[in-house]
């Protein structure tokens, strides 16, 4: 690990802006900048990561790193920044990890197949408010990987469960629900993520507040699918 002293940080700067200041200084000195992931910088893209002072996305709850402000740190603090650490998320460079394992899990079943044809009227399929709300909450997962980073087993189950339950609760997603959960869990295991021991760390650290209920839903989907699907 390398320690960089840094000056001129405003309390209103975001954590990533602090990183920008650091990298500008490094470039001016002719050194290599510290590589880190970022994109939208408003908490919706899921691109930023960073394990800051022992917590994914830093010490604040319900925020991504880009939404974390420097006012939460004291002047003179030494801040430790690490990449997500998981076998399934190999480090590209410095703080950048390869999260394409999540993409492959999505490709294994995180979709709804829609055949071509006429566009159906809106609201022709009734969906109860509670189901719509739950599916929406699950759909807010931004796929940042903080759940994997926080889990002592580097398990991806909170991510997978959000994707599975989001689709399997809705009528449009029910058609493929059995194959979906079977394939997504199988892909999760192939990627080398750990198994869930219900510590609940993932949901606490999740920047968008994906609930543990999704994991229970994934398991009941899994048991139901394994017992009744025609996939041998």
């Amino acid at each position: 690990m390398v320690t960089y002293p840094i000056k001129g940080i405003s309390p209103d700067m975001s954590f990533l802006e602090m990183m920008d200041v650091l990298n500008e200084e490094l470039l001016l000195k002719g050194e290599d900048p510290v590589a880190f992931d970022h994109d939208c910088r408003e908490g919706i893209c899921g691109m930023c990561s960073l394990f800051i002072n022992g917590r994914p996305h830093g010490p604040e709850r319900g925020t991504t790193t880009c939404q974390l402000h420097m006012r939460h740190f004291k002047d003179g603090d030494t801040i430790t920044i690490e990449p997500w650490r998981a076998a399934a998320f190999p480090v590209h460079k410095d703080l950048v990890v390869d999260r394409s394992a999540f993409d492959r899990i999505q490709q294994a079943g995180g979709y709804v197949s829609v055949n071509t044809g006429g566009v159906p009227d809106a609201n022709t399929i009734p969906i109860s408010k509670s189901i719509a709300d739950k599916a929406f909450d699950a759909a807010t997962c931004i796929g940042c990987g903080a759940c994997v980073a926080a889990c002592k087993n580097a398990s991806a189950i909170l991510f997978v469960s959000a994707k599975v339950s989001q689709l399997s609760m809705l009528p449009q997603g029910k058609t493929e629900r059995k194959t979906r959960v079977e394939n997504m869990v199988a892909q999760m295991d192939i990627e080398g993520f750990g198994s869930c021991t219900n510590t609940g760390a993932c949901a606490v650290e999740c920047p968008v507040g994906i609930s543990l209920e999704n994991i229970d839903m994934l398991r009941s989907e899994f048991i139901f699918a394994k017992a009744t699907s025609e996939n041998l």
Binding site: G54, E82, R85, A150, K152, A154, T199, G200
Partner: peptide, 19 residues
Amino acid sequence: RNKAARPVSYANNHPEENS
């Protein structure tokens, strides 16, 4: 399996904050 899923552990980790 779980040990293998995180071959490099964190230098600074505060799991007591979340579990």
